[in-house]
Amino acid sequence: MKTKNIAIYGLLVALAFILSYIEYLIPFPLMPGIKLGLANLVVITAMYGLGYKESLVLSIIRILLVGFTFGNLSTMLYSLAGGMLSWIMMAITKKSKWFSLVGVSVIGGVFHNIGQIIVAILIVSNPLIVTYLPLLLVTGVVTGALIGLLASMIIKRVNRHLR
């Protein structure tokens, strides 16, 4: 691993960690689970700027770090389910080339929420939790689109420094 890559990984992990913390500080009183997905900004930037594998590693490291620092085993499980499903769907969507970065980010936001709902249904063993899904779909689209727009601006400016 080149020294430059080590530095970039460190920088991105730190950035994702700080963004998660900022998000943790902003409560959304409307409903549990509504989040901006700021950390996904780093994951999606890494997916486009560095590669699939690299963004997956970043995402897992971030979830573990944030889980150990601010959460517990159950919150980590939710993040992991949301993060992994979101990463898989984003990778598939990006590979399909049907959508731009904004569409990929929307898919990421929506499936992050779907992943968490699935785990919630399994843990509480009550399928009624699925009634949270419609609102989470709407907020996932809005936040996903915003994060996607931001990420494409970032990619345009930092891409040549990442490679």
Binding site: S100, G103, V106, V110, L137, V138, G140
Partner: peptide, 22 residues
């Protein structure tokens, strides 16, 4: 930057979500 497909995707998910909420 934003493709037509992106807008269709956003529209379809919004309609499903808002429809289910309604």
């Amino acid at each position: 930057m934003v493709k037509k497909n992106d807008l269709i995707l956003i529209g379809v998910i919004l309609i499903i979500g808002i429809g289910a909420l309604l």
